[in-house]
Simulated assay, not measured.
Amino acid sequence: MTTLADKLAPYATAFRRDGFVMVPDLLGADELDRYGAAVDDAVARRKRFDNRKLGDKTPYEQSFIQCINLWEDTPAVRPLTFHPVVCETAARLLGIDKLRLWHDQALYKEASGRLTDPHQDQPYWPMVETDTITAWIPFDGSSHTTGCMGYVPGSHAVGLRVFVNIFKPEDALEILKMPEIKDTPPVYVEVPRGGVAFHHGLTVHMAKPNLGSRTRRVHTMIFFRNGSTRKNNFPHDSVERYHIAIGAPIDSPVTPIAWPRAAGDLPEPPNAPISELFANAVKLGAFPDKAGRADR
């Protein structure tokens, strides 16, 4: 009998070499319809007080609408964030036996939304270890027109070299000038509906603008190896809420085990409040407005 691990073997080889891979047919059409509607509702609820036009937003916000930790306040999203096939695939690609969630997030690129600037993810996470991976799920698939992702092959092997302030687009192109990758063009990957794109936390990546007439609807999950430890005092809600000390394992209800889990076993949302450091992000809908919502 062929197992998922057997099927994923060639994809894992490509992931180790390139730092990204697209795995087709991980989600069915009915799942995409159901989960897409759930994330749509969650994003609409989080952003219900934001009536700004696209041109009135910051360049960062013009790249995408970002709603983090939807699994906490939207029960219908939880089975997607902890989808057993997607989570196992992430673990197999990384080659690890136990995976935790760092956070999930919707990244909705509006029609006419600008490009996403090149960057690595790892600098934004106060984590010593770099066994990290993002699952990128476009509910309608993605294309060059609608804002598919681009990756610099092999850039994950360069290590953590440049902190890109993605809030300042004028600084973002500096990462592409690293000597090790300056002559390596990005590879843009279209994702068919049902496919999931994965990239390493150290892979330099970006996305095209959305030239289509509809919002590019994407849900992502960021995972990390169980046992990873906090690196420094760089503020991040995934470690602040339960006061994870520098050098301590990142292990709390905010970052539950994602794989392996028993079938149908979904973690309960944390009860710890969002740190006051992120009060403004809560007001903007980027984070849940309160922990452990009663609507679950």
Rank of each mutant, 00 (worst) to 15 (best):
R114M: 11
A5P: 03
A12N: 02
A258P: 03
Q122G: 00
A29N: 11
A44F: 04
Y108F: 15
E88R: 09
S112H: 10
M178C: 09
Y35C: 02
A258V: 10
G212I: 07
P267R: 10
A5R: 13
M221G: 08
F224Q: 05
D25R: 14
M127T: 02
T134E: 05
Y35Q: 02
K7L: 07
T2Y: 12
L173T: 07
V191D: 01
E190S: 10
R230I: 01
G212T: 03
H83A: 05
V23M: 02
S275C: 05
V204K: 05
P267D: 05
T3M: 12
E129P: 00
V191Y: 01
A248F: 14
P253I: 04
S143H: 08
M221K: 08
E110Q: 15
T116P: 08
L93D: 01
R114S: 13
Q66R: 15
F82D: 03
R78D: 01
D117W: 15
T229F: 10
V239I: 13
E129F: 08
K53V: 03
F82K: 07
F20Y: 13
S155Y: 14
H236N: 14
E240I: 08
M206G: 00
A135T: 02
R261M: 03
V128T: 11
D251L: 12
G195N: 04
A157D: 10
R225I: 00
S213Y: 11
E110D: 12
V39H: 01
D171M: 09
T203S: 13
F167N: 06
F287M: 08
D33C: 06
P123F: 10
A157P: 02
V158H: 06
S63D: 03
